[in-house]
């Protein structure tokens, strides 16, 4: 019984795609079957064959970009049916959020979104609930099962395998959603999937002071984020806004400078493995959620931290 993993391979294999393949292969290893990857994108076969490192035995590649959710649903559901796959894995990224629920409906499958750990033998999956204030354990009872994996929830191990690549050119119909233009990413690292994040709030006083946030992010190779009032005042682009009404993230390290730590902010970042808080106010609520705290002025601390990172040369 094979496990099918859908990943997007436009312009490269993102870390969250590696995670999804690795997650699928771990399930396949238990249930005894192949890990098949189905992908749409523009990579050549050598690049796709390297997915074997994360446990894929076969890659079925549809060479196309900008497929809409109906086309992707047809692609994934047809490959699942052709291969008799009983488990279908997605990454809970933008595409996964749009397509996984559709595929589940089409395959009459139960679905759990945002898995943060591998399922148990009887398919109980751990997910975040109540804006990260609790976990819930959800059992999938149907014969076919769909799971989407929250980015940065597990560390993929690299093995030695290579995958057989098969090009697929089935007719998916015309796209009903036409992409007209695209605002290219501002930061170099995409926030939802970033392992390291440097974030700042109203304590930075104004957009002209973000250079020191960007310098630290650059020194670390981190993505940048901000609190909601910062995005609302257009100091920073809205997709950097984290929290209950913005993006929920789960990096290994979250550095928060000049952010008070309101509960709605915490809702988006409390899944971070390690939190560093920099705040002039020793009573700021964020310190209660922090692993490391620096009581001090961000205007002095951030440049010092950047210098220390550079000096450590990690």
């Amino acid at each position: 019984m094979s496990v099918l993993v859908y990943i997007d391979s436009k312009d490269g294999i993102a870390k969250n795609a590696q995670e999804a393949v690795f997650y699928g292969s771990k399930i396949a290893a238990k249930t005894g079957g192949d890990t098949i990857v189905v992908t749409s994108g523009n990579l050549d076969n050598d690049a796709l064959s390297a997915l074997g490192k994360y446990g894929a035995s076969k890659v079925i590649a549809h060479n196309s970009v900008d497929l809409d959710s109906q086309q992707l649903t047809k692609l994934v559901a047809d490959v699942a049916n052709d291969n008799g796959s009983k488990v279908v894995i997605f990454s809970q990224d933008l595409t996964g959020k749009a397509v996984a629920p559709r595929v589940a409906v089409r395959l009459n499958a139960g679905i759990v979104s945002g898995a943060i750990a591998l399922p148990s033998d009887d398919f109980v999956v751990k997910v975040n609930a109540f804006s990260g204030k609790a976990f819930s354990f959800v059992k999938i009872n149907s014969e076919v099962k769909v799971i989407s994996v929250l980015p940065n929830s597990l560390q993929p191990e690299e093995g030695a395998g290579t995958a057989e690549v098969q090009n697929e050119s089935c007719d998916l119909g015309a796209s009903k959603v036409i992409v007209k233009s695209r605002v290219e990413p501002t930061g170099e690292i995409d926030l939802p999937e970033a392992e390291l994040v440097v974030s700042a709030g109203r304590g930075l006083k104004g957009p002209e002071n973000w250079g020191m946030v960007e310098d630290l992010a650059k020194a670390l190779g981190a993505a940048t984020a901000c609190s909601r009032p910062v995005a609302d005042s257009d100091w920073r682009p809205h997709h950097e806004h984290v929290g209950q009404t913005g993006v929920a993230i789960r990096p290994n390290l979250y550095i928060a400078a000049g952010i008070s730590g309101a509960i709605q902010h915490l809702a988006g970042v409390n899944g971070s493995k390690v939190i560093v808080v920099i705040n002039t106010d020793p009573e700021a609520p964020f310190f209660k959620a922090a692993d490391y705290g620096i009581v001090g002025d961000a205007f002095e601390v951030l440049p010092k931290l950047t210098a220390a990172i550079k000096a450590a040369n990690l």
């Binding site: 204030k133 976990f135 354990f137 959800v138 059992k139 009872n141 959620a289 620096i294």
Partner: peptide
């Protein structure tokens, strides 16, 4: 097709190191 088995609270932070 799915059922929630149980919930769990996240482990308490061990405290902030300054």
């Amino acid at each position: 097709t799915i059922s929630t088995i149980n919930y769990e609270m996240p482990p308490e932070k061990s405290g902030c190191k300054y």
